[in-house]
Design a protein around this nucleic acid. Structure first.
Lengths: 129, 129
DNA sequence: TAGCGTTATAGTAATAATAAAATAACGCAA
DNA sequence: TTGCGTTATTTTATTATTACTATAACGCTA
């Protein structure tokens, strides 16, 4: 039992079909780096989506079983690496505050999923042995 | 400083070209699972190669900066998941003993690298944004 | 028989990753 | 002014991973 509940399956982003009749599967994952640092990966993109969905960073983190601290750090790093704000945050105000995606943030999310779709195509077409 | 020295780069198995002029890179990795358990991945295949090269499990582990215990566990798991021996080990004998790959083990190694080559092709052709 | 380097295995230590907890600040609402 | 739920930040605790250490067994060598 490796972990109680990972925010997102730690492992495969794409999974090929079971082949060879003995449970053999090809799996893989993709991510984007900027200057050698992880910029966008599966969990981060899901976090961005949840921010859109819930309108707040704390609710987004909660919905993924992720600690607020961790989520906050991820958003900070993404904003920093992007060189522009992908997420804008408001502290205080009606409802206590909130967080939203900028157009640049939304664009990145859709682009990442398109990339993932292509990767899934590739990996599922792949034949083993 | 994440780690003193990983046996094999923890991260990317395949790396795309730097794109967008701002250090943005697409990276990824592949692995094979059997019944949901990791069967073959980068580090494991390198370990198999080193066993061929050195003729012993302890020397192979040493050459990778990997502990003998860890290497032994990986080989056990691979043999178990494969349903057949990929590595044969001899305890005692001339030189104290040794380890070698079976034909099935050698076949898996070449097949895995072929898979990786194709993956590298795909990822390097991929255009971002 | 004693010695060698290996495989085999368990136990312990160190490190990294992750989670949790606690506290402060913010700005509106009532 | 007080309370609320949020963001912001630090600190502490827990867990998982990895590495290290120690010891036994093996079978050949000399």
């Amino acid at each position: 039992m490796p972990k109680a509940k990972a925010p997102v399956d730690q492992n495969a982003l794409a999974v090929g079909p079971s082949q060879g009749g003995d449970g053999l599967q090809l799996k893989g994952r993709l991510w984007l780096e900027k200057n050698g640092k992880t910029f966008l990966s599966w969990g981060r993109v899901v976090l961005l989506e949840r921010i859109v969905e819930h309108g707040s960073l704390s609710a987004a983190a909660r919905s993924m079983g992720m600690s607020y601290s961790h989520a906050w750090g991820l958003v900070e790093e993404m904003n920093c690496l992007a060189g522009q704000e992908l997420v804008t945050k408001q502290t205080g105000g009606p409802g206590g505050g909130g967080a939203r995606l900028t157009p640049a943030g939304e664009k990145l999310v859709t682009e990442f999923w398109r990339l993932v779709d292509d990767f899934r195509d590739w990996i599922s077409r792949r034949e083993l042995s």
